[in-house]
Computed example of a mutant assay.
Amino acid sequence: MAFITILFYAFIVVVIIQVVYYACFLFSFAIKRSETRLKKQIPISVIICAKNEAQNLEKNLPSVLNQDYSNFEIVLVNDSSSDSTLEIMENFASKNSNIKIVDVKSNETFWGNKKYALTLGIKASSNDFLVFTDADCVPTSNLWLSHISSHFSNKESIVLGYGAYAKKKYSFLNKIIRFETVMTAMQYFSYAKLGLPYMGVGRNMAYRKELFFNNRGFNNHINIKSGDDDLFINEVATSSNTALCFSKESFTVSEAKPSFKTWITQKRRHISTARLYKAKHQFLLGVFYITQLMFWILGITLLLTAFPWQWTASLIGLRFIIQWLCIGFTAKKLEETDLIFLAPILEVFLITSQLSIFIANKISKPKHWK
């Protein structure tokens, strides 16, 4: 059998795997409608951990304070900042009785470890229901807390939300970052819908304090500086205790990194935790990424050879149609419709970036919490 024929059969397998993945994403999340079930407002503690975030707090904290919610406190955790973060927190606290400040001093054992600071914030919180966001995030509506908290129930003690990035005109990097965010959200929402929750994003998620302490908090990965969100959720989330909240009113938005260098540094931190996910999650995510990469490598190789291009083009077209349907429905749901028709181009850049990050992480350890 000619080598090129073997490549074609391999390409068929890759396309089938990709189509199956995207079909699962499509039917488990992309075409599902968001459930809006506002109900009695339970006591909530919003926890924001900040390190050198004075400007962001001054700009974004009013949007959290102005939530149309009857019973909530805000726990501001100052993680040994060297700027005026603590002063800004104290200024807000002097004017708002529902703000509590936790000032974390430098600790040699846990230096630079956000999990330590978050744990102190969780301990200081007054309520059992905790909502997490970052200082550089702003809710898209004053109903953010109402929508997130409404998904808690007697069984569901984790709520996964969507943390978007602000759109920036004429910026290709901004589109790559937002495309990667949509792809990640599509996966973690879909896996959770299929009963396999594996991560959440600290920009917008919630869980019960009882769940945190019953699972010994971040103790099992306290020495891993990243993973206060995804590693914890990967450890404690189950098919029965996890709810999804993706109504437009429940989003948070933050500013994307301004340069490729700072974005790559951020993604190196995020990707470094994936090796600690449960084996089944590593396998599923790994197969999806590898087949994405092989789709482009094999597809381009076959098109550049003497192999009948019609067969290759048909398979490429099939996969693109399924992908566009899936990404299209998801992007519309997450208000990222400008990314739909650029999906193939953005995918190539994203896959290339992820491969370079994987190689870089093998060579040296990434930098962590500021």
Rank of each mutant, 00 (worst) to 15 (best):
G227S: 02
I264F: 15
S353C: 08
A331F: 00
N154L: 11
E58H: 06
M199S: 09
K105Q: 13
N142D: 15
F25W: 09
N215R: 01
Y22K: 05
C245Y: 05
Y277E: 02
L315D: 02
I340M: 09
I122V: 14
I74C: 10
F329I: 01
C137E: 07
R275T: 09
S28F: 01
I340G: 11
N52S: 08
K248E: 12
G200L: 02
S81K: 02
K333Q: 00
K209M: 03
W369S: 06
A164P: 07
N204M: 08
F110Y: 15
S364C: 14
G161N: 04
Q266Y: 08
N91F: 00
L318W: 06
S353R: 10
L244I: 07
E156H: 14
H270A: 09
I322C: 10
K40L: 13
R275C: 12
I122P: 02
A279C: 06
A166S: 13
A10E: 09
E87S: 14
R275V: 11
F179C: 05
A166G: 12
S28R: 06
Y170C: 11
Y116T: 08
N66F: 04
F341G: 06
N56P: 00
P308E: 06
C49H: 02
I4L: 09
D79C: 11
S226C: 15
Y116C: 12
L334K: 00
A93C: 07
I340Q: 08
M205C: 08
Y289E: 09
H281G: 05
I363C: 08
